[in-house]
Each structure stands twice: as C-alpha cells, then as structure tokens.
Write a protein that binds this DNA or RNA. Structure first.
Lengths: 333, 333
DNA sequence: GATAAAAATGTAATCAATTACATTTTAATT
DNA sequence: AATTAAAATGTAATTGATTACATTTTTATC
C-alpha cells in the first residue's frame, strides 16, 4: 500500500503538500494540486485512516449500545443511525449488549480508548462505571434514564399509553390487563403511568394483580396471556407494552378458543412491520423508529463537535393506529 | 487520559515493561508486574487502542456489508456475527448497503485504509472495484456469489426449494406460482432451480409466466399475489422466496376473499420469528440464522490470521417446517 | 566465587499521517 | 526595481503504543 511519502516523492512535493491537497485543497495552488492528484492516482494511494485517526485523536466512529439487534424496532432505529452517520462521515460500531451492564461498559469504554468518539445508548442505563462520568459524548434514545443530563430522544410514553388506554376505555373496557416490560425500564414505567392516568380519569381502578411481566418477546407475551386469562375475573382487554408480546398474547388467546377482539381486545405498542399483518391486525401506537436514530445521531454529532444542542430532550410524535385487535367490550351496551 | 508514559514514570519502569505487563505478562517478573498494576490502577490507565492499532497495523474490527439491517433474517445473522466477534476480540462495523455497489465498495475499502481487518458480505456481489482483488480477507455469507474463491457460508438453496416444492406437489398442487426475489440473486436463482427440479421430477411443467418478482418486502409480496391471483388460470399454491413476501401474499389473498390454505396454499422461506404467528401460521424453510453469522466470523478469523480454512464452503442445514398455510389442492382427490 | 545461560528490563526506532512554524515563492504596491 | 504582504510550500515534531535490539540482573553450574 502506498503511503503519503510515496505520493510526495512521485509528485516531487513535501508530504505536507500532499496532506493539504487532500484536506484543504484551497491552500494548494491549482498546478500543484494537479500534480499531486496524478501521483495519487498513479500510486492508487488511499490515506491510512488509522494513522489519520491516531494523529488527529478522533476515530470518526460512534458506538451504538443496543439491547438486542434482532428486535425489529431497534433494527430500524439502527438503520436510522447508520444513515445519518454515513452522511456525516461516521462509521457505526455495533454493541449488542443483551442489556448487560458489563457489556455496556465495555463498549462505552471504546470512547476512552479512542476507538469511538461518541455513544448512542438505546437502553435506560448509564453505561459508565462512574455514573457521574461526563467524559464521553453520549445520547440516550428510546428507553431513557430519568434524572441525568444525558441528552435524550424519546417518546412521551405517558401520553401515548394514556391515549391507547383511552381507546380501550372508550370501547367499554373496564377490566384491563397489562403485559408489561421489565420492571426497571423507564419506558415500561411511563407506559404504566399513562395507563393508570387514563383509568383514574375514567373513574376506574387499576389493579396491580392485572399486571404481568414479559421480556418483550413473543413467547413471554403468550405466557403472560395465559396468566391473565386464567384469572378468576379475567380482563376484557389486554394492554401490551410492545407488539411482539401482543402478537404472542393474540396467538395464545386464540389457542384458548377465545376470539380477538370478540371476546377480548389486545393492543400493542411500536407498530412494527408485522403488526399490520397478524390476525387480527394489531391496534398499536406507531413510532417513527428511524427518526429516533437520525435524531440521536444528529444530536451526538453536535455534542462531539462541542456545540451544545439547543434542545437536549427531543420528543418524537406518536400515533394511535386502530386496527382490528381491539373492539367493544363484550357486555358493553 | 493517562498514557503508558505516565504509568511507566509512576511505576519507575520503562514503557516497554508496562507494555509487556499488559501484553505478555509472563515476560515480566512477579514483583514488577505488581508495581505496574498498581500504577495502572492509580492512574486509571486504559491503553489507547487507536495507537496500538496504528502501531500493530490491525484494527481488530470487521465490517459487515448487509443489504438491509432491518430485515429480520439479516439482523439475526448480524447478532451471530457480533457474538462471535466479541468473543474473538473484534468489533463489528455496520455497513448498511441497501444493495448499492457504491456503498459496498466504500465500506469494503475500510480494509485498505486500515479501519477494518476483514469483511463479511451478506449479499451476492463482490464488493471491490477490481473483481480479482484478493487483498482483503472476506467471507461471503447467505447470498453468495458463484464462481469466485471467496469462502462462503450458505444454504443448499436448491435442495431446500426442492423440498418445499415437493411438499406442495405432494399436496396435489400442479399449478404453482412463484413470488421470487430479484433476478440477479444467487439465492433466488437457486431456489428457482430447486423448484423446477421438483416440478420436472413430478412430470409437471414450469411456466415462466407464473413467476412474479418481489423485493423481499411484505408489500411486494402482496402486489405479486394480485398478479398471480388475477391470472386466467391462477395457481393453487404460491411458492414465496421469503417469509415477508409470503405474509404479504397471505394477507392479499385473504383480502380478495380467498381462504388460505383452503383455496390457495402459500409457503415462505427463512422461518422468521413471525412466521409462526401470522394467520395461518406459515409453512416455511427454517434456517439457522445466527449460525450463518458465527460461521462466517469464525472463518473470517482464520483468514485474517493467515490460516486457510479447511472447508471453504460451509453448508448449513435447513428444515421444512409445515404449518397451516399449505394444504391439499382444492380439486385434488 | 567465577562463568555462562537465561530472564528481566531499558533504549530508541517505528508506524503514517497532520500541522505548527519556518522558509520560499508569488503578487501587489509604490 | 524595491518593498511588503500574501500565498504556497517545506521541515520536522508529534501522536501513544509496540518491539528489535542492547544492556543489566538473576539464576544455575561448576
């Protein structure tokens, strides 16, 4: 592989001139530029980015911490990140963390070791050994930690859940079950708060025994549905905190001989690609997945360049998408 | 950030000794090791990987070229890659190429610029300007180019498609439609060959007019299904080359008032997570997605270390998964 | 304790680019 | 043509680790 020295020798100029031709061509005379360009082509020179990064102390790389890359929502977010990053000249390092703190820290440390310039964290954890560590540019998207000064890109999950709950309530549902995400997730807590708020406003009671925990997988949704449906006084509607669990719940419900939404309404969250195509099509909250990624990357870009983003907490819009998995409560007039 | 010099100063040893303590501790006496470790802790020293990579001329990074990260099959493959890479001490750079040659080349060039040590290509293109370029370690997985010496990890798509076709034929289907992938994909061509082979063996005719093209999206499957079902002599079964298109086709078929599989059987390919949960559950070919990733990464690792893998073309097993989207042909006794 | 061999440690070059600063060339002005 | 300012180019230091080679220390053997 040819180096900048080879090019400079062949062009008969100094390495500085070659370097400038590449990075600040306006500082080089037209004539010299031409000569250098020719030498570059002749030698098929490609600047060694590793050397450049080393010298300039930046890697032009961001690392993305994602709990599960195979989750269809996250994979869309990542697509958004990648697209923006590419435009801004950044490469994207993938850190599939499985939600494990160890792995998060390992990947986040890449900033300290100069392997990455910034971090996008899609889970609600601070990925540093020392929670007050401010040394690395970081943006928290999707599931965001509360009460830190990390910039965030998020949904107003309380409002979104409230909207969904109101939809169920308006259909006459009074006994609503919940298939929630893991206990310590901000997203989960906010969605629960939204649900409670709607119930309260409607003069209905929230019963903690109506809440089952899942891990966002289809399987866990099915398991949780069994628990809910075998209760003495089963709910007439199930509010699921993501689409996969809703899909699992629907399938389980049908398996148990019940009709959706005839006997029981089931709602999801996220509006993944398949939500529209399950049977019945899923009523859900749609979120602009890619935009979580593009916004997070844009904000991180500012952070990495030392400019403070004017809006440190971006809220993206959501939409209630009513399909056929929800309907009037059975005994509602 | 502390450097190796800071550590050496505090420990009262040379930088070489610090370096050795980290990389070849058995070359350093127990006593010195201890002193150095203390200094490392006191200074909270983390070796600058960028500097190390620069000096050693390797980045410990591989770049993955994927046509679409949001595709559920690919995202599982990538999960497999990430898991293996992590174990081997490699980071994974994400190159979402949208199947565009330009982007593939840009990302593949990262090896030339020392940003990556190797490439995993999940599409059936050679990602180099010069097709005969051998300078970068590369493994081709999933959709593989024919007639190159790139190592591959693939499915015997001919056999798999044949198996699926035989299943349809055994159900009495004689007029089988195809919703295929893009024309120039090896996967698509092989699956078509398998289908033809099965038809031939059964004494049935393959009619090119029964083949519609999709782009692996749900939507394109639905569009193609319309074309097939509105034919004068519509097929009684549709062989789809992936699950998403099958899901689109099922939905469209139902929309048109037909029953699946009562009126028409529909089969998929890949066995994505949702295949089991659509309605009716999809008959499909299951593939070990993660293993494409782990195998590719293992092979690439060998390549990057200069050892020739003993088996340069790995074939992974598949399985025909019969669910309810396929059934007996209508007029079959 | 002398000698040799082995182990431990140190010195300084090296990797390929960027860039501060110095020098030379060109252009502008009188 | 002399002078000055601006533009272009060159020189060499710099980045932080690794490592070949040199030197010192330790251990083993007689």
């Amino acid at each position: 592989m040819a180096t900048i020295r080879d090019v400079s020798r062949i062009a008969g100029v100094s390495v500085a001139t070659v370097s400038r031709t590449l990075s600040k061509p306006d500082k080089v005379s037209e004539k010299t530029r031409q000569i250098v360009q020719e030498a570059i082509e002749k030698t098929n020179y490609k600047p060694d980015i590793l050397a450049r990064n080393f010298r300039t102390r930046k890697s032009s790389t961001v690392v993305v911490l994602v709990p599960d890359i195979a989750n269809p929502f996250f994979s869309r977010v990542i697509r958004g990140i990648e697209q923006s990053a590419q435009k801004m000249g950044y490469a994207v390092l993938l850190g599939d963390t499985q939600g494990l703190r160890d792995r998060e820290i390992t990947y986040a440390n890449m900033v300290k070791t100069s392997q990455a310039d910034g971090i996008i964290q899609l889970d609600c954890h601070i990925p540093f050994e020392d929670k007050n560590d401010r040394s690395a540019p970081i943006v928290n998207a999707c599931d965001c930690v509360r009460g830190t000064d990390m910039p965030t890109v998020q949904l107003d999950n309380i409002a979104a859940a409230e909207k969904m709950a109101n939809h169920l309530i308006s259909l006459g549902h009074k006994n609503i079950g919940v298939i929630s995400g893991p206990e310590n997730s901000t997203i989960t807590n906010d969605r629960l708060r939204g649900l409670k708020k709607a119930l309260e406003n409607a003069g209905l009671e929230y019963s903690p025994s109506n809440r089952m925990y899942g891990d966002y997988s289809i399987h866990s949704g099915a398991m949780a549905a069994v628990e809910l449906l075998e209760k003495e006084n089963p709910p007439s509607a199930i509010f699921c905190m993501n689409d996969e669990m809703a899909i699992g719940a629907i399938r389980q419900t049908k398996k148990m001989g019940l009709n959706v939404p005839g006997d029981i309404s089931i709602s999801g969250f996220d509006d993944i690609n398949f939500a529209e195509f399950c049977d019945p099509p899923l009523t859900t909250i749609s979120q602009p997945a890619e935009e979580f990624g593009t916004n997070a990357m844009t904000m991180l870009f500012e952070l990495m360049n030392g400019t403070e983003p004017e809006n440190k907490n971006i809220y993206l819009p959501f939409e209630l998408v009513i399909r056929n998995s929800t309907g009037r409560a059975r005994n509602d007039p």
